[in-house]
Amino acid sequence: MEVEMTRSLRIAVVCIGSMGLLLTFTGCVQKTAGLEVTGTVMPTGEGKGDLARVVLVHSPKLGRQVEAVDARHEWVGDLLKASVTLMSKVDTTLRIQYRFVWYNAEGLEEDLGGDAWTPLVLHGRESRTVQAVAPNASVRTFQVRVRF
């Protein structure tokens, strides 16, 4: 009797596990965490005008496949132009999305909901640079969010 119960439990666990896997693969469970590259133009001090860069990887899976290898900025008039180079670390083609988010010197987001997610196809081991121009002259920090 006990052996039979253990067997049934095992079958139930396998069934539920398979269902979970199936739901994951069919898209019901979509992981949207990714990685962020933040660049802030230093306002004062010795490195004035330099770019302070921070890379945060929220998704280990994406972090294993894509790396932000460079972040730069330049000024077009009084508008900040930002560019980030993304490199594929795998041999297969990756389909990812990126989005620029902008902040002013006080850390407030500018042009809320302005830039949409943009698809990007990265072929095996390829590096591609994404760039955008700030929505207005008050922007001092940019952030590029990347996800699958």
């Binding site: 119960m5 049934s8 439990l9 079958i11 139930a12 069934c15 539920i16 269902m19 979970g20 739901l23 069919t26 019901c28 999305q97 989005r99 909901g113 830039d115 949409a116 997610w117 943009t118 698809p119």
Partner: peptide, 30 residues
């Protein structure tokens, strides 16, 4: 009863993903 529990759990899982559903989407999504 174990079988019934298993079927119930599956039904709950399936109910979360299938059937008509309306929700707000992200206007910035691609």
């Amino acid at each position: 009863s174990i079988g019934l529990v298993g079927v119930s759990v599956l039904a709950i899982l399936m109910a979360g993903c299938w059937g008509p559903r309306v929700e707000y989407g992200d206007p910035l999504a691609s």
